[in-house]
Write a protein that binds this DNA or RNA. Structure first.
Length: 500
RNA sequence: GGCCCGUUCGUCUAGGGGUUAGGACGCAGGAUUUUCAUUCCUGUAACACGGGUUCGAUUCCCGUACGGGCUACCA
């Protein structure tokens, strides 16, 4: 039996970075096992549905390179893969479960149940309370029939029999035991005709022949219900194996990472930028912050999993090879943005200049800079060891695209003397007429000239740097000069002499 | 409150009955680079607590504390 896993997000807004990790682990497992990775959209809550969220999910998976083999937008013969398109299927199975005696119709209104919850401390709809409530187990058959004929409103609830132990053999956590007596009779089919997560999930996983469920830890408590559902339908022998992932926690403080932490800590917690209805619902993402997708994947993979050994940098292919569910941590992992930045820096450093140029190009264009592919690659080579984010190429390194905006005055005052001023003008003459304008030749010529005139490199080089970049930080002086070219270099040297 | 899950340097983690408890990020110092960054070296710092089991527990068991999740006609 071949492995089939699914990533099943809800389109209720921007996909959380934790969701991306869940998708990643599913993807890695599928690839390693030669299996199938499926994208299923769980949009059964009409109230929380957010337009554009589905597209966001798909765009995210494309950006990070976790392409599904089947699913919404990716084809496949086990569809439809969007739960709102499968309504009739859930109806059929919900009623079937009632026929089998493992579920029942209930007519209590949400309001009535709320009242009970208010007045009774630990009220739950379960084997103890259902006999006193309005459902097909307590009402006369004729009345149940007429209510159903009238078209409701009604819900279908799972009938949990007390006195049983339910074992979940979680691949990460081992044997987890629940007492059925403590479980509530979960709603399976809502009054609006849509299924709840529990029903839709089990029916779809069964129909889509899912073999392994890898999902967040928040699902562990309801897995007992899911096991009961598989039993009720008679699907126990094909029930998937479960793996419940630890949660991603806030960088500091208590609790899991939330969308608000993005603004609070000034860090991205979403893969892509998201535009909500209000400014408060606008979020920046890893992509627009300037992360390379490979770095995000590497960072996320190691947040809650490690194969052992001392390797830190993994390509997707290496992750596929090394991945194993039993090396997933059990405890929650704190979101460490410093480490994320380190990964990005590493990936930028290691990237080909051509790859970098493909990122820098649009960034430069955005700023109104004109640059050839060849020049972009030169910039990449010059800057890649001194940037953390992709936009740094055109921001920190803006002077490679436009004239210096601001000079480090302090250094200028310290180095600029009358004697140097005279020398500097002679140097401009040399540069402006220099033939073989490459870094090596220029460096040799300039240094020779400095020595010939009785100066030290330390007297002049800082000023050259200042002329070209305005700052004391940046690439090697002569590399910059070579990239800028003779005319521009000469122009900038003259500009410095105008500074007072 | 109830039910479930967890706990190794500040953070991500490796390890596992006898180890100088390893690596990475961060931080600090140094070398290289007449800038910055990179790179390299060094340092910093951990088995939550209490009982067992055992010749010996950080590792196994039980408690406690702390953290987390769930407890909706949300997922």
């Amino acid at each position: 039996m071949s492995v089939r896993v699914r990533f099943a997000p809800s389109p209720t807004g921007a996909l959380h970075i934790g969701g991306v990790r869940t998708a990643l682990y599913n993807y890695l497992f599928a690839r390693q096992q030669g299996g199938t990775f499926i994208l299923r959209i769980e949009d059964t809550d009409q109230a929380r549905y957010v337009p554009g969220a589905e597209q966001y999910i798909i765009e995210t998976l494309k950006w990070v390179g976790l392409l599904p083999d089947e699913g919404v937008g990716f084809g496949g013969d086990k569809g439809p893969y969007r739960q709102s398109d499968r309504k009739e299927i859930y109806h059929k199975y919900a009623h079937e479960l009632v026929q089998r005696g493992h579920a029942y119709y209930a007519f209590d209104t949400p309001e009535a149940l709320d009242v009970r919850r208010q007045s009774e401390d630990n009220f739950t709809y379960n084997h103890l309370t259902r006999n006193g409530l309005s459902n097909s187990l307590t009402l006369p058959a004729s009345e149940v029939e007429s209510r159903l004929q009238a078209g409701g409103p009604f819900v279908v609830r799972l009938k949990v029999e007390p006195g049983r132990q339910i074992h979940i053999n979680d691949l990460i956590r081992g044997d987890v035991i629940f007492q059925s007596s403590e479980l509530d009779d979960k709603v399976l089919l809502k009054a609006d005709g849509m299924p709840t997560y529990h029903l839709a999930n089990i029916v779809d996983d069964h129909l889509m022949e899912i073999t392994h469920v890898i999902r967040g830890e928040e699902w562990l408590p309801s897995t007992a219900h899911h096991v009961l559902l598989y039993e009720g339908f008679g699907w126990s022998d094909t029930m998937p194996r479960f793996s419940h992932l630890p949660l991603i926690l806030k960088p500091v403080g208590n609790g899991k990472l939330s969308k608000r932490d993005g603004a609070k800590f000034g860090i991205p917690v979403f893969p892509l930028e998201w535009t909500g209805g209000t400014a408060e619902e606008n979020f920046s993402g890893f992509r627009d912050t300037g992360f390379m997708p490979e770095a995000v994947i590497n960072f996320l993979a190691l947040l809650g999993w490690h194969p052992g050994g001392e390797q830190e940098i993994f390509t997707l292919e290496e992750l596929v090879q090394a991945f194993s569910v039993d090396h997933i941590s059990k405890g929650g992992a704190r979101f460490d943005y410093e480490k994320a930045k380190w990964f990005n820096q590493k990936y930028i450093q290691a990237a080909d200049n051509a790859v970098l140029a493909s990122y820098i190009g649009p960034l430069a264009k955005n700023k109104g800079y004109e640059a050839t592919e060849e020049y972009l690659q030169q910039v990449a080579g010059l800057m890649k060891e001194r940037v953390t984010f992709l936009p740094d190429f055109v921001e920190t390194g803006y002077y490679l695209f436009e004239p210096v905006r601001e000079y480090d005055r302090e250094t200028f005052q310290k180095k600029w003397t009358p004697a140097i001023a005279v020398f500097f003008n002679e140097l401009i003459g040399l540069v402006a007429t220099f033939d073989t304008f490459n870094a090596l030749a220029l460096e040799e010529a300039v240094k020779h000239f400095i020595q010939e005139k009785g100066f030290k490199p330390g007297d002049v080089l800082p000023l050259l740097r200042l002329a070209l970049a305005g700052t004391m930080k940046g690439p090697a002086v002569f590399d910059m000069a070579a990239a800028l070219g003779r005319e521009e270099t000469a122009r900038r040297l003259r500009a410095l002499t105008q500074l007072q």
